[in-house]
Computed example of a mutant assay.
Amino acid sequence: MVEVIGVSHKQDVWTLLWLRPLLVLFLLLAGGCSLQPSLMPLQATWSDDPAMLARLEEETAVGRPAAVTSLLKNSRQQWLGGNQDNGLVILHRALRISPDDPLVYYYMAMMQSALGEYHEASQLARRSLTLTDAPLLREQVHLFLNQLNRSMAPDVQGK
């Protein structure tokens, strides 16, 4: 048998078989990664920016009743304050006033996802896309849906 630095080829292969999984495990843990996907409710870092949300409200404001504008701002404050349930109640009022407002559907989608209701969030976000031509809102909804799909992936794989 051929000796390589005092270790036979067979022993070297055996050592590599043991070390490879340990190395992978170490790299995952050291990198802050988890072996199990997170099933936490979706918390989009880009969507909780008050300036971005205000900009979305401005971009989509044409034709929006003042009451709906006020309700959107109130729901946003509730949502950013961590009270998604109250935010949803407020958005349901806005939806009764303006049933075709894409931003209302988008805000509802974000709140539903924060509550872990991913399927409902996806449907609401898709409805928002069908109602808007605003480029910034379309971009944000697409980002949201992509993140939502990644968040739902572990759920689908587990079933």
Rank of each mutant, 00 (worst) to 15 (best):
M52E: 13
A67V: 09
S34E: 03
Q112A: 14
P50C: 06
N74I: 08
A30K: 11
L95V: 02
Q36S: 11
R55A: 14
L95R: 13
S38Q: 02
R76E: 11
D100W: 02
M40V: 12
A109F: 05
M40R: 15
T15A: 14
Y105Q: 14
L103I: 04
P21G: 00
L27E: 05
T60L: 02
A109Q: 07
S34K: 03
H92K: 13
V104M: 10
L39F: 08
V13P: 00
L27S: 12
S113G: 12
Q36M: 04
N83P: 00
S98P: 00
V68S: 04
R55G: 08
D101S: 11
L22Q: 09
P102F: 06
W14V: 08
T60C: 05
W79L: 11
Q77E: 14
G82P: 01
A30C: 05
L16M: 13
Q84W: 00
G82H: 01
P37C: 05
A51T: 14
N83Q: 04
E58W: 13
Q84M: 05
P102D: 04
I90S: 13
F26W: 15
W79C: 03
S113I: 04
L39E: 11
V68T: 06
A66S: 10
L88V: 08
A51E: 15
F26D: 03
A66N: 04
Q112N: 15
S113F: 07
